[in-house]
Every structure is written in structure tokens, then in C-alpha cells.
Design a protein around this nucleic acid. Structure first.
Lengths: 204, 204
DNA sequence: CTTTATACTTGTCATGTGACAAAAAATATT
DNA sequence: AATATTTTTTGTCACATGACAAGTATAAAG
């Protein structure tokens, strides 16, 4: 019979540091934009620890994606509970608000998707099949009327209008700073953007 | 006194093949997503020709970006001429239409920007300073009233709402196929999307 | 305290990378 | 046709990369 010892604290710290760095760098530089060694150095751990904890680069990427989507799910489900009692129209606006705010607070998720959404790879399939579709299904189950108001019957046009209008600025933060000299992550900017998106999408 | 011979046809073909492949691969896989050697192989030319024609990888990237933005400028200026006589409201809708259609026809440009817009690099600076800002300036000069209707006084919110809503689907084509089983490049999809964006943005 | 599993450290390998350089071939100009 | 120039073809370099493996240190469990 084999083992069953609980993981050591330092191991969890190492894993965390690596996943944190993976989220930051994969989302901005793409999967091939950073090497395992650079990643380890940036995370402040020794050379071989990615191999030890994750086996290979692919698995590290998966766990980074996992964590980002866990955060999104938590953030959403918490807010959706609060919207359970309100009228569909207002609930729909609540979803928009929640999404825009999350996109501003954690642009890494949409950045990761932007990096991957353009080309065919196991990573797009993984994100879509394991993360996005289930999340959309959950939304339609929990708040069918609000979801219907927002996206109709899973209309791709309305879906991407929503994502593009609501999240793109925050993903393109660097370009926005370069082009307009404005930081889209400032609170003012975010709330103003929320209002504009709701004004755009939330009236039918 | 040195030379002045006109370039040979095969050289132009080589350069073209390389720039074509550069556009296709840099936009989908990012700058570091493909090596010079892979690129040459995919372009069907011999190893070493990137070095000869472009010096280094950076310069090849620049020329790929140059060509994409030349196409955009041509496409736009041609259509803007046709809008010179119409009322500002209608001209503004014409700009939207032109932009969405171009984004669908040549998603590579927005993909390239998506790839680069997230992190700080010489490439974002190059695109913004050399390409985007001048293009925006031209637009405001040629059609001040329509531009004002579209983006106000260079309002970043309205700018990115426009870009995100109008172009994001086409950049994320792979994700869209995986998620909805729909190809956003089909003519039906494009025209429907044009209508929706105009309906969203074109009414104030 | 001893044992044993877990975690870290370091060495190594085959392969890929961007860049340059020199030789060969093809083409334009006279 | 002769020659000068452009273009292509190969060879080579130093270094980065992902993966694995063998050794060492640390911490948990008895």
C-alpha cells in the first residue's frame, strides 16, 4: 500500500508562484512567448521545478487556465445568487456589470483567450469545451430569462458583441495607454465603461 | 558609383511569399510563435532568405505590419471618397460598415493587434505610433462630422466599443467555430454582423 | 530518532534557434 | 558574350529550449 502524506507547505508555495507567473506571462506573451526556464526564474524558483510539479509545459498552461476560470466562476456565481430575485431585465444588466468588472479586474483571462482564440490548437479546444461552454450552460440554467435577454438563443453575434464591447479594452490595455494615454484599469474608466456597455446592450 | 539595377522578378516572389506567410503566422501564432526556419519552409523558400531579404526577424514583422495597414488604408480611403457627399449620420454608418467588412475580409490585421496589444513591446509602439494614430487623424480630417458622431472627441470608450464589437468575432474565428459551430467569415454572418453593429452604435 | 516519502537541486542531452558568412548560381546591363 | 550585381544556397556559430535523470535536502509519520 502506498503513501498518503499531505503536501508540504513549501510545495504549495512553489506551485502557486509558478501558476501565478504562468497566468501573467502566458496571457501576455502567449504559450510560446516564454520558456520554462524564464518562467521559473521570474517566479523565483529553481530550474527543474516546473518539470517536477507539472510534468511538462502543457500541464502548467492547463492549470493556469483552470485557476483563471475558477476565479471567473466564483466571481459570477456569487453575483448571480444576488440576482436571483430581481426582474429579468435588471438581472441581465447585472450580468453585464459583473462581466465588465471582472474583465477589468482580471484581464488575464480574456487575454489568454485572445492569444489562443485565433489559431487551431489543443488549447482553444480545452478552453471552449471544458470551460466556456459549461459556464454558458450554467448561466442559461440559473437565469434563463436574463440569459435569453442578453444572448437570445445562443446567438453568436450577440455573444461576441457582448464580449468584444465589454472586455476588449481591458485586454488591450497596453495599446490603449499607448494610443490614448489612458489606463483602462482605473476605477473611473471601468465604471464609465460599464455604463456605456449597459446603455448599448441593456436596452432592447 | 554603385549600382541601380531593378530587382529581379524571383526576388519579388520570394519577398512576397515570405511576407504572406509572415502575415498569416505572426497574426495567429504571435511574433515568437514561429521561427524563421519554419516560416521559410512554409513559404516554400530556402533557409537563409529571410536574412538576405529582411536582415532579421524584426524587420520581416515590420514589413508584414506595413502591408496589412496599407491594405486597410487603401480599403478605407477608397470607401471614404464615396462617402464625401452624404450626410454625416449616413457617412458614419458607412465607416462602420467598411470597418466590419474589412475586419471580416482580413482578420489578420486585428489578430496581429490582438497578439501585440496586451504586452509592452516595440511592436505595439510601432503599430500605434506609425499606423493607427495617423489613420485616426486622417479620418478626423477627411470626415470630421462623421468621426465626431462615431467616436466623439477621441473617446477611448467609444473607440474600443467600436473595435471590440465590430472586429472581435472575426479575430476569434477559431473559438467561434469551436463554440458555436459557425464560421464567422461566411457572407451571411458578416452582413448580419454589420447590421447589428450599426444598429448598436449607429443610433444616438 | 529513524524511516520514508516528498520536494528540491543540478547535470546532461538532443534539438531548435537567430544570425552571419562564404560560395554558387542566376540575371541584368554593357 | 563578357562582366558586374543580385539572389540563392549551404555551412557554421553560440546559445536557448524542453525533457529527463540522478543525486541531495527537507519534512512528515511511526
Amino acid at each position: 500500500m502506498t503513501s498518503a502524506r499531505r503536501p508540504q507547505k513549501r510545495a504549495l508555495e512553489t506551485r502557486n508562484a509558478l501558476v501565478d507567473t504562468a497566468i501573467a506571462t502566458f496571457s501576455t506573451r502567449g504559450f510560446e512567448g516564454i520558456s520554462i526556464r524564464q518562467l521559473e526564474e521570474q517566479a523565483g524558483v529553481k530550474r527543474g521545478l516546473v518539470a517536477y510539479h507539472f510534468g511538462d509545459k502543457d500541464q502548467l498552461w492547463r492549470e493556469a487556465a483552470d485557476r483563471l476560470f475558477e476565479e471567473l466562476a466564483e466571481d459570477f456565481l456569487a453575483r448571480l445568487d444576488a440576482l436571483a430575485e430581481v426582474a429579468p431585465e435588471e438581472a441581465m444588466r447585472g450580468i453585464v456589470r459583473a462581466f465588465v468588472r471582472f474583465s477589468a479586474a482580471r484581464p488575464e483571462l480574456n487575454r489568454l483567450m485572445m492569444q489562443e482564440s485565433v489559431a487551431e490548437s489543443w488549447r482553444v479546444a480545452y478552453i471552449v469545451d471544458e470551460k466556456i461552454r459549461p459556464l454558458i450552460d450554467t448561466l442559461y440554467e440559473m437565469m434563463p430569462q436574463a440569459a435569453l435577454l442578453l444572448w437570445g438563443d445562443r446567438d453568436p453575434h450577440r455573444y461576441y458583441l457582448f464580449i468584444g464591447a465589454g472586455a476588449f479594452v481591458f485586454s488591450a490595455a497596453q495599446e490603449c495607454r499607448q494610443l490614448f494615454g489612458v489606463d483602462p484599469r482605473s476605477e473611473d474608466f471601468v465604471e464609465h465603461h460599464v455604463d456605456m456597455v449597459i446603455n448599448l446592450i441593456g436596452r432592447r
